[in-house]
Design a protein around this nucleic acid. Structure first.
Length: 219
DNA sequence: ATGACGATTTACT
DNA sequence: GTAAATCGTCATA
């Protein structure tokens, strides 16, 4: 198959910080029921370190129906629902039983832009009413799930075998172009909110919040 | 049964 | 800058 570029299990079975950095530059691919393909290059990722990480859903071993996928083997998808209306997608790291993951925060749209645009501006809720520039399609964790039609049905999906959601090897990002900064939206996590666990491609217009930084605002 | 809370986005002052 | 939209899930009772 032309599956040669698909990232395999061994790629994912490493600590979440290493995985987050490694994911930059590779492609997230979504195949729809009608066979069309939507794809984007990963330009922003956050690492969630598991039971010790107060910002992680799996903090202190807290295990629920909603976050159960975090305990799956590396290379699975963890899709969760937030704020009553948005879905976000993670790539699970390490191995079964170790609940660490990487949140995909932004993509550089590559293929299927028109379809992405329709997904982003379709009927409510919380969707823009005006035409969007390419850099508005996938420049945020819930924007990209809208654009790629990712929701609960893909929670737990095995990215190493799935026909509808997977990762494809892309052009890597030079270390010098990777910026580390504090994670977004986790102000409740105390000092864990300050750690530089967010990684993005410098000067890429698709990054959700380009600013560098070591601090984050408390809620 | 009820209440509080988000790993966000958009629109508006 | 701030506020509203919106609801599944979990903790408490």
């Amino acid at each position: 198959m032309a599956d040669r570029r698909r990232l395999k299990r061994s790629f994912f079975r490493r600590d979440p910080v290493a995985l987050a950095r490694a994911l930059l530059g590779h492609e997230l691919v979504r195949r729809l029921d009608d066979g069309s393909e939507l794809a984007g290059r990963i330009v922003e990722v956050e690492a969630y370190l598991g039971v010790e990480d107060r910002a992680a859903h799996s903090y202190a071993g807290r295990r629920t129906r909603a976050n159960a996928s975090m305990w799956l083997d590396g290379g699975r998808a963890y899709v969760y629902f937030v704020y009553g209306m948005h879905w976000c997608v993670n790539v699970v790291a390490q191995r079964e039983g170790i609940p660490t993951a990487c949140l995909i925060r932004a993509l550089e749209p590559l293929t299927g832009l028109d379809r992405m645009h329709r997904h982003r501006t379709g009927t409510r809720p919380q969707k823009p009413r005006k035409p969007l520039a390419p850099q508005d399609l996938c420049s945020g964790p819930a924007k990209l799930t809208q654009a790629l039609a990712i929701d609960k049905t893909l929670d737990g999906e095995d990215l190493t075998t799935s026909e509808v959601l997977f990762l494809r090897r892309g052009r890597g990002v030079p270390t010098g172009q990777v910026v580390a900064a504090a994670r977004i939206g986790v102000g409740y996590a105390g000092e864990w909110a300050l750690k530089p666990l967010r990684f993005f491609v410098e000067d890429n217009p698709n990054v959700s919040r380009p600013r560098r930084g070591g601090s984050s605002r408390a809620r």
